[in-house]
Simulated assay, not measured.
Amino acid sequence: MTALEFGYRIENLTSSLKPYALKLTKDGEDANDLLQETVFKAYNNRDKFQDGTNLKAWMYTIMRNTFITNYQRMVRRNTFIDTTENNHFINSSGSVIENNAKGNFVMRDIKASIDSLKDIHKVPFTLYFRGFKYHEIAEKLNIPIGTVKNRIHIARKELKKGLKVYAN
């Protein structure tokens, strides 16, 4: 097969390779780059292609391997080697240590905000928060279901106001 014939056959396959590139990269620009790199590698290695075999499968394999190689290169770029005596490998993006201090502060503020509600709003809200249905709360407190919904709504508004600092 001549280089011109090989190039023509590759050109005809690019439309079927594009969806696979999009599936791998999840980005249009990256997919175009991957497709271009795949076509380039296939054309440069056309002497390794054996006539009578499946060109489309060969191209898919080149694309998959190119994607994997690029991904591994990107991961290595985000990893650096500590040159101290112990030579530890450290992944720079995953070295965040978190204690639960922020969560403890937030829970304390939420509890304080709930405790500051009036009892007529706090009781239905607390029951609802614990998993009771509106009709169960209405029966338990012996009030109409509309009143239960209204009191829970008011409690939510008050809590939202009291916890405004955590809005974002």
Rank of each mutant, 00 (worst) to 15 (best):
M59R: 00
F89D: 05
L35G: 00
M59T: 00
N100W: 01
A21V: 06
K111P: 00
V39A: 12
Y43E: 10
I81E: 11
F132Q: 14
L24F: 01
T147I: 03
S92V: 03
N100M: 06
I97G: 01
A21I: 04
L159H: 02
F49E: 08
D109V: 02
W58Y: 15
N100E: 10
E98S: 08
T25V: 07
T53I: 04
F80V: 05
N104T: 07
L117H: 03
A21L: 02
I152W: 00
E37L: 10
E85G: 13
A155S: 05
L141A: 03
R76L: 11
Y128V: 05
N91A: 07
D51T: 11
G52S: 07
E29Q: 12
T25M: 10
T61Q: 12
S95V: 06
D33V: 09
E98A: 02
N70D: 12
A31S: 12
H88A: 09
F89L: 15
M63Y: 00
T25A: 02
R151F: 00
I154W: 01
T147K: 08
D47Q: 11
Y43G: 03
N142G: 03
I120V: 12
K157F: 08
V75F: 06
N91Y: 13
K157P: 03
K118I: 04
A31T: 08
N70A: 14
T147W: 01
V148F: 01
P144I: 00
H135R: 11
I114S: 07
I143L: 13
F49K: 03
A31H: 05
K48N: 09
F105S: 09
T66C: 03
I145V: 14
T84Y: 01
D119V: 08
I145K: 14
R156I: 10
L22Y: 10
D33N: 12
D115A: 13
N142Q: 09
H153V: 01
K41P: 00
H153A: 06
L34C: 04
T25W: 03
L55K: 03
D30L: 15
Y71H: 08
E37M: 08
E29M: 05
A31Y: 02
R151M: 01
N100T: 11
I143G: 08
L55R: 05
F129C: 07
G131S: 05
F49L: 10
H135G: 01
V75K: 09
D82S: 14
T83G: 02
G103L: 11
L34P: 05
N86H: 12
K160V: 07
S113H: 02
K160Q: 11
V148M: 08
F105C: 09
K133G: 09
S95F: 06
H121S: 06
D30K: 13
L127Y: 08
I110D: 08
K48H: 08
E139I: 02
S116R: 10
E139D: 15
L24G: 06
T83S: 10
N54K: 01
D119S: 15
A42D: 09
G94F: 11
L141P: 14
I152G: 06
T66V: 04
I90S: 12
N45I: 04
Y128K: 13
D47H: 09
